[in-house]
Design a protein around this nucleic acid. Structure first.
Length: 600
DNA sequence: GCCGTTTTCGGCCCGACTGTTTTCAGTCG
């Protein structure tokens, strides 16, 4: 039982309770717990089995939820959830994913019109019944019609970080299958796409039948979708589909290459061996009817006359040409990340204290961690004003003297106001070691106005990083309308790095925009945007997207040692600082850090 | 349902925005 699965059950229960007009704080308690559990570093199943009492030490988990976790781990079910579905059918909750529909309106749709599904909602909209409900009108009706059309019948996709949890568990299980020699994920998951529709598992074994049987017996499987002698497909309880393919060990490389895709890449690369009279399929490399290779992926690449292309690049977006010309990038790796430039503490909306975040970064061996709580404009986050930032800076200075490897940078995630001005005064900005800016409000400005707004913010000489540049939330909302190339050019010109935000539902910039940013000459920063200690690990998801964006270590500012990072951040800033702005504290803050011997 | 050197009961990030209203409910972040 994966943590993500337990979290999913709690989320589902929260939705149903909300529709049933339960105490909103009770609803929130389930959601808070779900969010914590989803990324909890240890296996909840193991904790529950070893020491159930220890569960209550998890923030947001009390006696009751600890009991429910134990129940889920033991029985695979949650009685409270079954009970809730008696009041409200579970599918009704899905309606809340539509923009403009919250618990109250969905409840009205269900109670008054009997609407339970997207299809029934579509019907009710067509008959004009929806607009007659109190609280509904013509605008909302049109908005819903639109949202339903966009959604279509597209199957839901899973965020890569969520799918990874299911993948890890299943792979571990499969490695104990009788006679299995190798097992590896293929498909879009191996190519590190930000979301996956299903998982493709490739395994090798002399005898396929026992491996297939083992796969079909996976306890988390809800339904067998297909089964044959060398392939099978199941749907997990989470709804995630997994396809299994069993091959001979001799075919491992060619099979892995084939099932990793993408389809477009495969079509393109398979054309190449023809010139040498060779044919490549999932079973191997063939000269006439003789099999001459296919045990490794390198053999497949060699048959095409190319070096091995990393899976992340196999999208037929110029990687074959680059490989042929010997210009494949040496992609950045997680190990090359030396620090994190975007994190929050409980001073704003984080869940860990400054001390906890500092020690966590230190233990990771990071050379630096930027503490970048929100600015005051975002009321919901209890953003920090000038006085609280100064106070935090003093705490940071004290802490820095006790940390082994890691230097804390005093920063702020400053809101870009609708007119492009920044949410803090210049003096306060200059006193910070690092300034990151981001858009959180007025997300629906027209493209021209939105672009102007961001460009103005980037032109402020104190700004170092533009965080989550598009503001998209995967599966929830599209990003802001932005002339991205212009923004990237301005970022390059102003020495502002664009962020790849590693939060699972952001992954923003995405792969394509990251690549586009690099093409414009901009640098990138891969940040966790951690709101809790465990979220520091999110950086790996950002690295995946950076790799898909063809980024090398040299393209990422936080692969640098501290000293190089700081001199980069502050290059040209001394002259840019307005004379009118008292630079006293700024000089102390920035200059001292840069000059500190041994700081790197 | 969780949590606590201001509380073991009574709080729980709360303001902006939109659309539907004519003073506000619902949604959103």
């Amino acid at each position: 039982m994966e943590n993500a699965e337990i979290a999913r059950l709690f989320r589902e229960l929260a939705d149903l309770l909300e529709l049933d007009q339960a105490n909103p704080f009770r609803v929130r308690a389930y959601r808070t717990a779900a969010r914590t559990l989803e990324t909890y570093p240890d296996s909840l199943s193991e904790v529950a089995a070893r020491d159930p009492k220890a569960l209550t030490a998890i923030p947001g988990v009390g006696e009751d939820l600890a009991g429910k976790i134990v129940e889920i781990v033991k029985t695979g079910r949650l009685r409270a959830l079954a009970q809730a579905t008696r009041h409200v059918p579970p599918e009704v909750a899905k309606l809340m994913s539509l923009p403009g529909l919250g618990p109250k309106r969905v409840r009205a749709l269900y109670r008054t019109l009997g609407v339970r599904t997207f299809a029934e909602l579509r019907g009710a909209l067509q008959k004009g019944r929806v607009r007659k409900l109190p609280g509904f009108g013509a605008k909302l009706e049109e908005q819903l019609r639109q949202a339903l059309a966009e959604r279509g019948e597209a199957p839901s996709r899973f965020l890569r970080p969520v799918a990874a949890q299911y993948a890890d568990a299943l792979l571990k299980y499969m490695r104990s299958a009788p006679g299995l020699t190798r097992a590896e994920w293929a498909g879009s998951f191996r190519r590190c796409q930000e979301t996956v529709g299903d998982l493709d598992l490739l395994v090798t074994a002399r005898k396929a039948a026992p491996v297939v049987a083992h796969f079909l017996a996976y306890p988390e499987s809800e339904r067998v979708l297909a089964q044959g002698t060398t392939r099978a497909a199941i749907r997990l309880r989470s709804g995630l589909q997994v396809d299994l393919r069993v091959l001979d060990p001799e075919s491992y490389g060619s099979g892995l290459y084939y099932f990793t895709g993408s389809k477009a890449h495969n079509i393109a690369i398979r054309r190449l061996p023809h010139a040498h009279g060779l044919k490549v399929n999932e079973y191997g490399i063939w000269k006439g009817k003789t099999r001459i290779g296919g045990r490794t992926e390198e053999e497949v690449a060699r048959a095409a006359g190319l070096p091995l292309i990393p899976p992340e690049l196999r999208e037929d977006r110029g990687e074959l040409e680059a490989a042929r010309a010997g210009r494949l990038p040496r992609l950045v790796t997680l190990e090359e990340i030396r620090g994190d430039l975007h994190s929050h503490t409980d001073a704003s909306d984080g869940r860990a204290t400054l001390v906890e975040m500092a020690h966590a970064a230190d233990e990771r061996g990071y050379a630096y961690l930027a503490v970048t709580d929100h600015s005051p404009h975002l009321k919901v986050t209890r953003g920090l004003d000038r006085a609280r930032l100064r106070q935090q800076r003093r705490a940071i200075d004290r802490l820095n003297s006790s940390l082994k490897h890691c230097r804390l940078l005093a920063g702020c995630e400053v809101d870009i106001l609708p007119d492009g001005s920044l949410d803090l005064d210049d003096e306060t900005l200059w006193a910070l070691d690092i300034v990151i800016v981001s858009v959180h409000t007025s997300l629906s400005l027209p493209k021209a106005a939105q672009t102007r707004r961001v460009l103005r913010a980037l032109s402020h000489p104190a700004v170092d990083i533009l965080a989550h540049p598009t503001g998209r939330l995967l599966g929830q909302r599209a990003g802001i309308a932005l002339d991205f190339e212009e923004v990237a050019r301005a970022a390059a010109g102003n020495g502002v790095a664009l962020e790849i935000n590693s939060q699972p539902d952001r992954q923003d910039l995405d792969d394509l925009l990251a690549r586009s940013a690099l093409a414009q000459g901009a640098k990138l920063a891969i940040d966790s945007d951690a709101h809790a200690v465990v979220e520091l690990d999110f950086v790996r998801w950002g690295v995946d997207q950076a790799r898909r964006g063809w980024a090398t270590a040299a393209d990422i500012i936080n692969t640098q040692p501290l000293r190089a990072l700081l001199s980069g951040l502050h290059a040209g800033r001394a002259g840019a600082r307005p004379r009118a702005a008292p630079a006293r504290q700024g000089t102390r803050g920035r200059a001292r850090l840069a000059a500190r011997p041994g700081a790197a």
